[in-house]
Amino acid sequence: MSNSKQNDVVCVTGGSGCIGSWLVRLLLDRRYTVHATVKNLNDDKETAHLRALEGADTRLRLFQIDLLDYDSIVAAVSGCAGVFHLASPCIVDRVLDPQKELLDPAVKGTINVLTAAKAAGVRRVVVTSSVAAIIPSPNWPADKVKAEECWTDVEYCKQKELWYSLSKTLAEQAAWDFSKESGLDVVVVNPGPVLGPVIPPTLNASMLLLVRLLQGSNETYEDIWMGLVHFKDVAVAHILVYENPSASGRHLCVEDISHFGDFVGKVAELYPEYNVPRLPRDTQPGLLRTKDAGKKLMELGLQFIPMEEIIKDSVESLKSKGFIS
C-alpha cells in the first residue's frame, strides 16, 4: 500500500452516516487529515460521534454542506488531495417526490462534488455507488454471474418505481460521463447492503432492514439484494481504491453474491430466539451465487469478513445500542 498518500488532506461527503463514520475513523487511524461533511453542524447526532474519534481533535474538520449548494461543497473540498463522495439520500421505502427526495440530490449532488473537486485540483475521487446500479438487470444473460460490467435497467426501475436504484444508477453514470469529459480521475465502489457495528446513533437502511427481519418481516427485497458486506470492509475498500494508482473502474463490494434467503437462513440459525421468518433459499430469481464476487478488491488486498461474522457484529451492535432487546 502506498504510504505517500497517508498525510493527505481528504474530504468525506456524508461523513456522519454509518459508512462515512467508519471511513472517517479508518482514515484518521491512517494519519490522514479529514474534512467530513454533515447536513447540520448544530446536530449532535451528526457530529458528536465523529468528534469522539481518535485523532479527531487535531485532524478532523467538519463542514456543513447541501448537495445542491455548490459553494458549500467548494469550501469542504478546498485544499484536499482526494475526495470520497458518499453523501446521497437512501430511501428504500415509499417515496412521495422521487425527483426532489432522491434523483436531484444524487445526480446533481454528484456533479457538484465532482465539479468542485476538479476546480480544487483533487487527485482522485472515489464515488460510493451501490449494487443498486448493477441490479435489477433482468436482461442480463441467465447463465452469467453478475459483475462490474452489469448495469441496472433504468426503464425497469421507472416501471417498478425503484427510485433509489434509479438514483444510484443515474448518479454513477453521471460520474463516469463527467470523468470522461473533464479528465478527473474517478474510481467507484459498489457495495451491497452494509451491516456491522454502528458508530453513529442512527441506523442506515440496511441495518433497519435487519431490525425488521428480527421482528418478523417477510419481505424478500427481490430487486435490491445481491449479497451483504461489513461496514469496515466498505471503508477499507474506499481507501484501497484511493491509495492504489492501478485501481480503475467499478469495484463490486460484497462478501459473496448470495440470495436474501441465504442471509435470512443464517440469521435464523444464529438467533433462534427472534421471530425470523422462514423464507425459501432462492429469493432473487435468476441471481447466480459466487464466492469471489469482489475479486477486484481482493486483488488490491481486501479480505472480506464472512456473513456469519457480519450478522453477529450487527445484532450485537443493535442490542448494545438498544435498537433491539
Rank of each mutant, 00 (worst) to 15 (best):
S4C: 14
S4Y: 13
K5E: 11
Q6S: 13
D8A: 12
V12H: 10
G14T: 00
G15W: 02
V24F: 06
V24H: 09
D29A: 13
R31K: 12
Y32T: 06
V34R: 05
A36N: 10
A36G: 09
T37Y: 09
K39G: 14
N40L: 09
L50S: 01
T58A: 08
L60F: 00
R61L: 01
F63C: 11
F63E: 13
D69K: 10
Y70H: 14
Y70M: 11
A75W: 03
V77E: 03
A81M: 09
A81S: 12
G82H: 07
G82M: 08
F84N: 06
H85K: 10
L86N: 13
S88W: 03
P89C: 02
P89N: 04
P89I: 00
V92Q: 13
D93F: 13
R94Y: 14
P98W: 05
E101W: 02
P105Q: 01
V107H: 01
G109M: 03
G109A: 02
T110A: 11
I111F: 12
I111K: 15
N112S: 06
N112W: 06
N112P: 09
V113N: 03
V113P: 03
L114C: 09
A117P: 01
K118S: 11
A119H: 15
A120H: 01
R124A: 07
T128A: 13
S130H: 06
A133K: 00
I134G: 00
I135F: 05
W140D: 03
V145G: 06
V145R: 11
K146N: 03
A147D: 15
E148V: 12
W151V: 02
T152A: 14
T152S: 15
S165E: 10
L170M: 12
A171Y: 07
A171W: 04
E172Y: 01
E172M: 05
Q173Y: 08
A174G: 01
D177P: 05
V189P: 03
N190S: 12
L195M: 12
P197G: 11
V198G: 02
P201V: 12
N204C: 10
N204G: 13
V211Q: 05
L213M: 04
L213K: 00
L214C: 07
L214G: 10
N218P: 12
E222D: 12
D223H: 15
H230P: 10
D233I: 11
D233G: 11
A235L: 08
H238E: 13
I239N: 01
N244A: 14
S246C: 13
S246F: 15
H251G: 01
F260I: 09
F260C: 07
D262G: 11
F263T: 13
V267A: 08
L270W: 02
Y271F: 14
N275G: 09
V276K: 03
L279T: 04
L279P: 02
Q284C: 10
G286L: 09
L288I: 15
L288H: 06
R289L: 08
K295Q: 15
E299C: 14
L300Y: 11
I310F: 00
S314N: 07
S314L: 00
E316W: 04
S317W: 00
G322H: 03
F323Q: 04
I324G: 10
S325M: 05
